[in-house]
């Protein structure tokens, strides 16, 4: 058992979450767009592919702003560095990032959203379906991470 549930305190979590929330809220209040991120990874394929699925209206109508939004996310991370902040190095093996990435991409699109779409926008909309989705991926996420930690993988 960990000695404390919050070994790094809670201040940066609460402040970071507040900034994230303000970003998603700003998008909704100014443009009316729910700020889920994962659709970007589907709608962007419509720039390259001609198949009917990727040429559906929902992607063609939103691919511009989703690209701009994704660019903003990348720049936001860059701004954090420019502000003189440092990020601790990460050491996740490449195979986990690759396999995990495919599962995340496929799962988020099949599941109609990710941690931002269901987790923030869906829950803020008080969508019961989104609550069920969050419980689902939180559950399998906890099981997967805990089993791998236990196995030492």
């Amino acid at each position: 058992m960990p000695v404390t549930l919050f070994p790094h305190g809670i201040a940066h979590y609460a402040l970071g979450g507040t900034l994230m929330g303000l970003g998603v809220a700003l998008l909704y209040v100014t443009t009316g767009r729910p700020g889920g991120v994962s659709t970007f990874f589907s709608s962007s394929w419509s720039w390259l592919l001609r198949s009917p699925f990727f040429r559906q209206g929902a992607f063609l109508e939103s691919r511009h702003w989703r690209l701009v939004y994704a660019l903003g996310l990348v720049l936001g991370g860059g701004l954090f560095l420019l502000a003189g902040q440092t990020v601790e190095a990460s050491h996740i093996p490449a195979w986990k990032l690759a396999l995990g990435g495919v599962l995340i991409g496929f799962g988020a699109r099949l599941g109609g959203g990710c941690t931002s779409g269901h987790g923030i926008c869906g829950m803020a909309s008080l969508s019961a379906a989104s609550f069920v989705m969050v419980i689902t991926f939180l559950g399998t996420g906890i099981v997967t991470a805990s089993v791998l930690k236990w196995l030492g993988v």
Partner: peptide
């Protein structure tokens, strides 16, 4: 919005 969201994720 994306910028703020990304900055908060980093923070």
């Amino acid at each position: 919005s994306g910028l703020l969201f990304g900055f908060g994720l980093a923070w």
